[in-house]
Amino acid sequence: MSVLALDHLTKRFGGLIAVSDLTLEVPERTIHSVIGPNGAGKTTVFNCLTGFYRPDEGHVRFREEQIDGLSPDEIARRGVARTYQNIRLFANMTVLDNVRVGHHIHVTGTWLGTVLNTRAARLEEARVLDEARRLLQFVGLDDQRERLAKHLPYGAQRRLELARALASRPAVLLLDEPAAGMSPREALDTMAFIRRLRDELGITIVLIEHQMRVVMGISDRVTVLDHGVAIAEGPPAAIQRDPRVIEAYLGARHAETGFASDHVHGAS
């Protein structure tokens, strides 16, 4: 059974069609990658999935329930979490508070309980702290927990953003270029980490990524977008041989020399 499904999704911005008639099924406990040249509409897909954009046509279903049209916080409550291409942490909050606030949807107490300092509120606060610290240990940031998020180095910020997303205990995790700006070595670590999320926590992962090595290494299935249209979908091995995909990337190479060719080399 698919946990997340896109059904003929279309999103337009004025005259520009960012995503056109995209249909996609993501089965539970799989890693599904969305790749494509710059401007192919990958992030727009994520924004439609999380309710940040409302699709013009088509539907998004989460566990057979239609979720397009819901507000982002309602979608988050159902179990969809995400990270961002350009890291978006709560910069002036501590590392610990970033994760604690990520836990928000599981907090049941009200502000009145906090003000009156009830037993339930204290217990819940202790539980939140406990879980946040466990997550910080999981991503290796527990010793940094009192620092402000903006003072962390780049790689640690990426991991913190992940910890914040995990704090909501999501069923589906959308990762927007998790290995961006990383060295091959770090990208490998990230791959291993993403695989652990799937294997140990049972999270379904949808991934946008530019580094082909990452994509081909861990994906169960890959969808290739070009100008908002899905031009291929299948297991990584098939995608690498697909003539339309090579065409799309080679076509891109003529426009952006060097950059795209790197992708093809990474893929081969």
């Binding site: 982002p72 002036n92 704090a167």
Partner: peptide, 13 residues
């Protein structure tokens, strides 16, 4: 205060 969009995306109404 820090980022309204992200706050909403992590489930804050």
């Amino acid at each position: 205060r820090e980022d309204e969009d992200v706050a909403e995306a992590i489930g804050i109404s």
